[in-house]
Design a protein around this nucleic acid. Structure first.
Lengths: 370, 370
DNA sequence: GCTTGTACTTGAAACGCATCAAAGGGGCCG
DNA sequence: CGGCCCCTTTGATGCGTTTCAAGTACAAGC
């Protein structure tokens, strides 16, 4: 099963090597019959261009790399989806690597992509992107997603602090007197959400607030544990509003409360905080705040394209994506989301939107637990 | 920002080109101080090996490619997760491409991966894998996932027919008299599920069965539409058991029924059919049948490794993964699932498992809508 | 001092392809 | 029939590595 190479095709078709190469890359330069002959030979021989050789000889290929911390997080998927569609629109391929919540692995894939002569690379970093100054010097355009860089560089981020503020304002509007935030602020994004909550509540010193750590991975099981713990408190020590720093946490809390016979939202209201599709695609929707992941992915690719086309040195450039209004629009404007297959768009008709002028996120209040 | 290449490092470190290469690939061959010198130079210069050149010169790299039809489907993610963990265990990288439900794109990425000198490639194909005989002749090991190939080749598949049978048996056990299957059997997997349902019901001619098409994408919105339609029927024409060919379909049906004031599971029982995590991670779990996606991904990589190590010609080899018992075990055995972060494992304690000796799937009955 | 051996290091030869200056061929006009 | 121009095809060159046969330096043994 010897690999057939371009010279085999050339010999077999009775043309020269360069002609076959042209057939692949500049078909318009060939006489139609030559092109046809070559294509037939290619198919007959089962020739497959060696990408490594192409890249080596021809410089960068039209493809982007995307390194994500996890694949099973809805937000990352939205980013991937947005990036993918935008990349295809420009004729680029998108390759995705899963860093599996591992910084070393993230670095590894990043280097891998850079070394593969990708046209550009995007990361949704787990830590601060200042983690490796060497990265900034790389000769490949790079865009950081969902994070704020202090160093020069490109990034696209949602306003996590605003996300926290929105949910807090929602709680205030619902007349909350005692708010419990559930989750470990393990990542900067989560920290910012907590900060936003605190800032919003600073104006309301009469409202009691507490934050409960929920274990390393912020899973639904963690939420269930905390929920049980809350349920077992005397009624007057229970919060009347619980915010899950993560939607799955909120989901777990709800399960526990309901299992213990506490009415949601009758006795305790519960909301999530990160717009995880599972929150609103389940049969009983959860109130949450949706950061515009799809938009972030799109803008990321646009930033990459910009660097490629301008051949500009990577100056600092930051984008804050989405306004409250736009996010909602994106959800309902079918042509824009391009088969993104939002699971229950029809539900948004009953959603009340909590607009906030300086923010990127939208509160999707589906009311079931609120 | 000129790219620094291996010769720059060599010159700067005062050694030869081959020595730097050895530092990268066979560090044990170098004198410790030479190695140290070279590594320092590499870091100082920010040298990044050109992967294309490495691959071209050195043959295959230790990396696998995985082409998935969609990223936002839980099952595909489980595959990706299993494949990733297994690949890393063997020291291989895993790169993922999203075919976006597009056969052309799927082909494109497949060729891309093959041409990149990947050590192996896996696909979860949308159509029959016999789609392109040329693929079989490729000099790169390939494994098909979640599909049955009739041609020689490797594949790992779950038993979709059994999945349908299980859900039908569940319905029978619940005393169903009129079963409505909702969804379009657009893919072979779905067709097989329907077949399984029909086969199981063949033994019970007194049970009425109907299949309702739900539109191209089997979305929750489609399910909502069908659910509305069902709700509007006269009570005596309504099914007492609805099976969503897809969990999101089932989810949509439930929403519609409940919105129309029909009790679930009081008047109509509803179950899903594909073990989508959102089904059981939501706050109100849905009964569904879970194919062992994680296992499929794992086995896929194992099959790839086997081909690589034996350098065996790709003979036909099929694997059916998982038994009812094993799937449940995998869910509770933490060391096996390796941070797979199953969203609500604790719920399984209340799950009743419908075992079926010849099957790969497990019915997870969480009882909420059943 | 010479030989043999050991431990590193060297550098030229591929790897498969894109590129591009140059050659080839054919048609048209004079 | 010759000259010119345009369209198509050619093939040598280099992309940044790895590899490996050949080289060097040094030490030990005689």
């Amino acid at each position: 099963m010897a690999k057939v190479k371009i010279s085999d095709v050339a010999r077999e078709a009775g043309v020269s090597l360069g002609t076959v190469s042209n057939a692949l890359n500049h078909p318009e330069k060939l006489r139609p019959e030559t092109l046809k002959l070559i294509n037939e030979t290619i198919n007959r021989l089962g020739y497959l261009p060696n990408q490594s050789a192409r890249q080596l000889a021809g410089g960068a290929t039209k493809s982007f790399g995307l390194v994500l911390p996890r694949l099973d997080h809805g937000f990352s998927l939205q980013i991937a989806s947005g990036a993918h569609n935008e990349a295809r629109k420009h004729g680029y391929d998108l390759l995705i690597a899963n860093a599996d919540n591992d910084g070393i692995l993230q670095d590894h894939y990043l280097r891998y992509f850079m070394g593969t002569q990708m046209s550009g690379v995007m990361v949704q970093p787990m830590a601060s992107p200042d983690w490796h100054p060497a990265m900034a010097k790389m000769p490949v355009p790079i865009v950081h997603l969902d994070i704020h860089c202090s160093e020069p560089g490109y990034y696209v981020a949602a306003d996590n602090e605003a996300q926290g503020r929105i949910i807090a304002e929602l709680a205030i509007a619902r007349g909350a007197r005692h708010i419990t935030v559930v989750g470990r602020a393990a990542f900067m994004q989560l920290t910012l959400r907590v900060l936003g909550i605190h800032k919003a509540l600073a104006l309301h010193p009469d409202i009691k607030i507490e934050v409960i750590d929920a274990g390393e991975w912020n899973t639904a099981a963690d939420g269930y544990g905390i929920g049980t713990q809350i349920a077992e408190r005397p009624a007057n020590e229970r919060p009347d509003f619980v915010v899950g720093l993560t939607d799955v946490l909120a989901s777990g809390v709800i399960s526990a409360l309901v299992d213990k016979g506490i009415s949601v939202p009758g006795q305790v209201r519960v909301a999530g905080c990160d717009g995880n599709p599972l929150a609103w695609s389940g049969s009983v929707p959860l109130t949450t705040v949706a950061p515009p992941g799809y938009e972030i992915g799109r803008k990321g690719v646009q930033l990459l394209m910009e660097q490629i086309e301008n051949k500009a040195p990577a100056k600092t450039k930051h984008i804050r994506v989405g306004s409250a209004a736009r996010t909602v629009t994106a959800v309902t404007a079918a042509e824009d989301i391009n088969r993104q297959e939002l699971v229950r768009p029809f539900l948004l008709e009953r959603a009340s939107t909590q607009a906030s002028s300086q923010t990127d996120a939208t509160a999707i209040n589906l009311g079931a637990y609120l």
